[in-house]
Amino acid sequence: MAQAGGQSGRVRQRTHEGFLRHKGFRWAFVATGLSVAAVGVYFFVALQLSEPPNGGSWIGYTLGTISAGLIVWLACLGIRKRAVSDGHYSLKAWVSAHVYLGLSLTVLATLHTGFQFGWNIHTLAYGLMMLVIASGGLGIWAYSVLPHRLSANRGEVTRRQMLDNVASLDAQLQEAAQPLDRACAAIVRHSIEDTEIGGGFWQRLTGNYSHCANKQALGSLRNLPDSGPDSEILAKIETLMTQKADALALARRQMRITALLEAWLFVHIPATFALLAALIAHIVSVFAYW
């Protein structure tokens, strides 16, 4: 139901379909067509030649040029994503094309090698490319599975509110701990001062918070001997700490899903830069040693 609206003739997208289904899988068809054509031509040519059509044959050059062009163009998504220009473009269309054309590289570049691999810069470039594509595959998986979990976890709570909740519970703990003796106050202070909500990327990714200060404090609190006059206050503090543990768990789950959504990029992006460098080395060396 794409429709142009208004008098100004501006582009107005009304379509409701995800990047994989964009325009009825347009780029999936383009990428498949490209791959099928490349396979067809390759084996047709291979029959004519005495040795396999490697990078040095005319078909090798053609496939190599297309592949190199695609790699550079695919890498440009990083700029397109951040450059918000006034004219018409759809980042979704770019991502859709990025995914399918990127996948088609597995066919195009493999045919370009003529199945000749070795311990050299050329195969390194190929290997890096496959790594980029494989990590991209993880990205597709992440983008199709995780959004739902991300949304289900947070409900209608924003990240800011999650952090505010923890801060507010800390304030209440502080208030409640005022009448306590030094030892008990130290436990509460441990929870307030030493609890790390997120931690490093690896911690966020694994969701392992076994050394969480709040958790430790809660443990020490429960191990305290029954102390008559303060028992009511301690019960209140225990409730607050349990609430804090829940608030922390919610925030950490959110961070974990976010980290999972980003984790593949930590391979995808550096590998892309390594690939670009290896690609340049590959091209330069091929032409230098012609």
């Binding site: 997208q13 009304r14 379509t15 409701h16 995800g18 289904r21 994503k81 980042l91």
Partner: peptide, 10 residues
């Protein structure tokens, strides 16, 4: 335009 996955629609 800037939504990479097509989640944002008007």
């Amino acid at each position: 335009r800037a939504c990479p996955t097509g989640a944002a629609i008007r």
